[in-house]
Every structure is written in C-alpha cells, then in structure tokens.
Design a protein around this nucleic acid. Structure first.
Lengths: 119, 119
DNA sequence: CATATATTTGAACAAATGTTCAATTATTTA
DNA sequence: TAAATAATTGAACATTTGTTCAAATATATG
C-alpha cells in the first residue's frame, strides 16, 4: 500500500531531503560496504592488514580453494582495496587503502562493544 | 587447483594466523557491513542521521513502496541499527547507534577522496 | 621446447537478496 | 462496531553472489 498523504511530516522530510547525498556516492559506498560484507573477504583483509601474502598462503589460511580466494581478490583489486606485486610466479597481495582497515577495525570494535552490552 | 606446497611463506602466514580474528566477530562484522551494503538502506540511514522519520516519509523520499521500506527497516531493527517509537498509528524511526552513522560517514569520505584521486 | 608451479578466468549452480503484491495487524475516529 | 490509515508480514519472483570445476595464462626451470 502506498501512503496517500502528501507529506506526513513535511518539515522533517524537507530537512532530510535538503541534505540528501549524491546518488553516485551512495552507490559507490554501497559497493565498498558490499565488498566488506563477506566473511572470507574480511578475513583476507584482516590478514593482509598484518602482512602481505600470496594467493596460496591465503587459501591455506582460510582452508579454501585457490580459485575461490583469487575470485575474491579480483573483486578487491577492482575496487582498489588491495594492491599486488609480482615476484616470479608468486603474486603478493597487500592493502591498498588505509581507510579500509580503519573501517574494518571500527566495525569489529562496534560488534565487540555491542555484544558486551547485550551480555 | 589446490596449492601443494606446505607453506609458501611460513613466517608471514604464522604472524597473520596468530592475530586471526574470532570467527563470531568476523560473521557479525560481515552482517553489519551487509546491512550497510544496500543503496536504499544507506539513504534511509543517512536521512535518519538528520531527523527521525516515519515509514511513510521514508517511502515518499525514496520513491519506493511502504512495504519495501518496512522490510529494510525490519532488517535494520533486527540488527539494532535503528530504533523506533510509536505515536498513535505512526512509527518514528531514528538511529540507534552513533557508530553506524560514523561508519557511513567514513565510507562516504573514502569514496569521495577516491574519486578525487582518480580524476 | 616441455614440464611444473602459481594464479587467473569463465561457466555453472545453489543460496541469498531486494522488491512487489496481497493479506494482515494495530491504532484512531466516526 | 465499522471504516480509514499506518505499518507489518509472507510468498513469490528475478537478480545477484560465492563457490566449485575445468581450462587457460604466466613464469621459472630442466
């Protein structure tokens, strides 16, 4: 059912609408959050926040296939969240962006505080 | 293909493994990020960071059905990201958690910085 | 060049997600 | 009580996502 009233709380709506974020920024933010919304990728990024690692190392650590990890890294690379350097056959990955590890840290802290309060 | 080597970079892997985050924290963090990974929900949360609003207001602002917004709010409520108060028939929603608006703000800033660098 | 190793890629498939629609609940007012 | 309004809910659907599998690249070495 669609709400039939013109505006229930016109003032509040106008105040919020005047500060509306740009649609492009919203979409880009959603994309970044989506990249961080997978447990495997959080673990990858957390590990990379400690040291650079190759695909094979990460696969071992996560107990997952090299292919699966590589697909995740491709996504993170496309969003410039990780960078890489090649050394012979081996590709070393590391965090490209300090902000991302800050985001993860904030979220982890938030989650840990939340569970303390809840008991 | 699974990597056959025992550990390509044993020291690095051990360092990262020693600081591995708790699985539960990883899952909870992923859930929070997932809640933030939808454009509609980012807009809802941004609007609520400015003022409390009812479901109908939000539906109008987003140009979406009341039902769709209500489904999103249910998710955000379940994760204690928004809270609500009832006033007669109307349910007013607002942010439950300051950390969340901080996370969104950080991400928005990150995105905006990124696009500056890229040109 | 042929072989081995490290990684990437594309297709396929199951599982999860966002929206719509129709029905339901909760509250107010006639 | 009946009608109207605000919101919630469940089922259904198309779309997206994460993983696996098999095949393809890229690099080093015999």
């Amino acid at each position: 059912m669609k709400c039939g009233v013109e505006y229930i709380h016109r003032d509040a709506v106008e105040r919020a609408e005047n500060q509306m974020i740009d649609e492009g920024v919203v979409l880009d933010s959603a994309t970044v959050f989506k990249a961080l919304s997978d447990p495997t990728r959080i673990k990858i990024l957390h590990a990379l926040s400690i040291t650079e690692l190759c695909v094979c190392d990460l696969a071992k650590m996560m107990g997952m296939s090299v292919s699966a990890i590589s697909h995740h890294l491709r996504l993170l690379r496309a969003l410039r969240i990780v960078k890489f350097r090649k050394e012979g056959k081996v590709v070393f990955y590391s965090l490209d962006d300090v902000h991302i590890s800050a985001l993860i840290k904030s979220c982890v802290e938030h989650v840990q505080e939340g569970s303390e309060v809840e008991g």
